[in-house]
Design a protein around this nucleic acid. Structure first.
Length: 182
DNA sequence: GAGTGCGTATAAG
DNA sequence: CTTATACGCACTC
């Protein structure tokens, strides 16, 4: 049986809960206003009988990697932070495709549908994205409507917009930094 | 098998 | 701008 280590941290976008098993980060949620509901969801996803231990240091370390370390445009987070989400074949495929969207850029739901080889299953892709268990690291906030509007988000359109704005700002900062070096 | 859904396109008010 | 209709299909019940 899998054992889970979870912990709490403060991100620039509000408090988060981070959980990992021995393979990698398996769950990451914004706590939002309803902390208990989110923790309950974690329980239903992994089973109330899954042995857990609390380790806030681990969570804070993950948070620092996500938001404080120098992020390059190619998104090095993946290499340092292996992910281990649980889901159906289809969901895992969709989440993998979402991870290929570069930092600071966006893709449409249709783009992701094509990437997973199911160009007509756009709504199903959207549903799978909505069930993303690992916020930010599986960057579902980078998936937007074809007409440029943001679309819905599990943690609120506000979080989605904030994350996109932040990434865009970071991206531009890195680009201008690189230009001034030459 | 029926109902649902983080979409998209088109038509209409 | 908003509502309506149709399409699409993985998933849940």
């Amino acid at each position: 049986m899998d054992t889970i280590v979870y912990g709490f941290a403060d991100s620039p976008f509000g408090p988060i809960i981070v959980a990992r098993n021995r393979k990698g980060v398996c769950d990451l949620q914004f706590l939002g206003f309803d902390r208990h509901r989110v923790i309950h969801e974690l329980g239903t996803r992994w089973g109330v009988y899954t042995p857990t231990t609390q380790n806030d240091d681990m969570a804070q370390q993950v948070e620092r990697l996500m938001f404080e370390t120098k992020i390059t445009l190619s998104d090095p987070i993946s290499a340092e932070l292996p992910l281990c989400p649980r889901g159906t074949e289809f969901q895992l495929k969709v989440w993998e495709a979402v991870r290929s969207i570069p930092f600071g850029t966006t893709a449409t739901y249709q783009d992701i549908a094509k990437l997973v080889g199911k160009p007509r299953a756009v709504r199903n892709v959207a549903t799978a994205i909505g069930e993303n268990p690992i916020a930010v690291l599986i960057p579902c906030h980078r998936v937007i409507h074809k007409d440029g509007t943001l679309g819905e988000n599990h943690w609120g359109t506000n979080i989605k917009k904030q994350l996109l704005d932040w990434e865009k700002q970071q991206r531009e900062a890195i680009i201008s930094q690189n230009n001034s070096k030459q």
